Each structure stands twice: as C-alpha cells, then as structure tokens.
Simulated assay, not measured.
Amino acid sequence: MKVEIWSDIMCPFCYIGKRKFENALKQFADRETVEVKWRSFELDPNMQAVPGQSIHEMLAERKGVSVEEGKRMNDYMGNVAAEVGLHYDFDRMIPTNTFLAHRFLHLASAHGLQDAGEERVFAAYFAEGKNVGDLATLAQLGAEIGLDAAEVTRTLETDAYTQQVRLDEYEAQQVGARGVPFFVFNDKYAVSGAQPTELFLEVLEKVRSEEKPVVVAGQAGAACDVDGNC
C-alpha cells in the first residue's frame, strides 16, 4: 500500500498528523506492507524571515490580532500537540522559509532516510528552537540521522532537488490539496488534516481490504491455474 503525505515543516498540524498516522500504523496488522512517501508543500513560498521576530509576533501580524492573542492561539496549539506526546516550544521557534528544508528532505529520501529526516526537522523546528532554513543547521541535522554533513552542504549550495520540490507542489494541486497535512492512499482515497488515529486506521483497513482478492465460499467455478490446468 502506498501512502503519500503532503506536508510543510512549519505546519503545526503536520507534525501532529504524523503522530496520529503513526499511531494508526502501530495498530494496523499489515503495517510492514505500507510504503510512506513524504511530499513537499510550502504554505508560504514567499515568506521572508524577519530577524528577531517571534512566532507569536508573526502569527499576530498575519491574523491581524494582538501579540497576546497570537500567544494564546499558539498555547492552544501546544496543548493539541501535547495530546499526542509532542512538545511545542513556541517561545523558541524561529520563523523561516522552508524551501531549503524541503530540498534537504529530498536529499534524505535519496539516501533512504526520508522519514528520519522529517522527524528530525519537525523536532528541530517545533521543540528545539533551531533555524531549519539555515544551511549549517541542516548539515548538522543531516549528520544526526546518518547523512554526511559535507554532502548536505555541497548539495544544498546548488539548486539540487529544486525540481522535485516543485513537482510535489504541482502534484498537490492535481490531487486537490489546498492545505496540509494531506494524505493520499493508493492514489484513490484522500484524507485532509490531522484526523483522529481511528479514522486513519479505518482508511488503512479499507484500502487493504480492497487490495486483497475476494474469496467466495462454495463450489469452485471454472478456471485455469498456473500449471496450465483448465
């Protein structure tokens, strides 16, 4: 079974959705047959980081509310994250453009480390106050998951994986993803948002039931077998 997940590093619901989906996978009997592919999605491709601006100030500016209200909104999101065992430290978060981080994740994928990369970058941004739009930071994170830091630096100093990010974003439009996280199962079923674990499990089981052949009890019908018997 193939599951594609469109996601952005700066999206708080994407990390929460990752946990909820993982919890569903743990309960899914055929989890070893599920292939998960993370896809790039930029919520704000034109974002320009403002040095010294806090995440509370950025949210307040975008929502047209006070900084205090922005902090209350972030506190609420932190409580939602805590329900699935995640710690969001909004006071330390560094708002940044995520394009470089998406390219980094494609590099991680090329080395079979895509999920490890997603997890590490999410934790770095939401819990550790690291700037995931910084090349040196990404090289360090890469080394922590098993990549060569020098290769990360060399690769991201070029335009490598730019086309892959843009293709993911184009395909997001084709499948109707207007927000993230956005999950697509076997190119057939789409789930939008950080839905409850129970819903993810229900979809996994439905897709698996459709993949398996239907066996009808009763007298065998006319058929030919792989040995040439008809």
Rank of each mutant, 00 (worst) to 15 (best):
E211C: 01
C14H: 03
F200M: 01
P45D: 07
G228T: 11
G70A: 13
Q195I: 05
A172Q: 04
S7Y: 03
V226H: 00
G52V: 01
F21G: 02
N97V: 00
A110N: 01
P12N: 12
L201W: 06
K18G: 03
S192E: 07
T137R: 08
R208K: 15
L138I: 11
A150L: 13
G221F: 06
L199K: 02
T153H: 05
K188L: 10
N79F: 00
V214K: 13
A139E: 04
H102K: 11
A194Y: 02
E128L: 05
A127M: 09
A116Y: 04
R166K: 13
F90I: 03
R62N: 10
G179Y: 07
L135Q: 09
V152S: 07
V203I: 14
L156R: 11
E210K: 14
G221V: 04
T162L: 15
P181K: 02
Y15W: 14
E157Y: 00
A143V: 07
A101G: 05
R103I: 08
N46R: 13
R92D: 07
G146L: 11
E57H: 08
F28K: 02
A223H: 10
Q219R: 10
K18M: 06
Q195F: 04
T96H: 01
W6D: 01
M47V: 00
E69I: 03
D44G: 01
G146Y: 09
V180L: 05
G142Y: 07
A194V: 04
M73S: 15
R208C: 03
L105K: 06
V165M: 09
M73A: 13
L167P: 06
W38A: 02
D225E: 10
Q163F: 05
A177M: 10
V214E: 11
M93Q: 15
K71G: 00
P196D: 08
A150Q: 13
Y15F: 14
L204P: 00
A136L: 12
A149L: 10
G133M: 05
V121Q: 01
G52N: 12
I55G: 00
Q195R: 11
A108E: 09
A223R: 13
D227H: 13
I145N: 07
A127D: 02
M58E: 15
S209M: 06
D89R: 11
C230Q: 08
I94G: 04
I5W: 02
Q163M: 15
G221S: 12
N23A: 03
L43D: 02
E83D: 09
E205C: 03
D91A: 14
R92P: 00
I9C: 07
G133D: 06
Y170P: 00
T33F: 11
L100R: 09
R62Y: 08
E151Q: 14
V65A: 08
V191L: 15
A108I: 12
V214F: 10
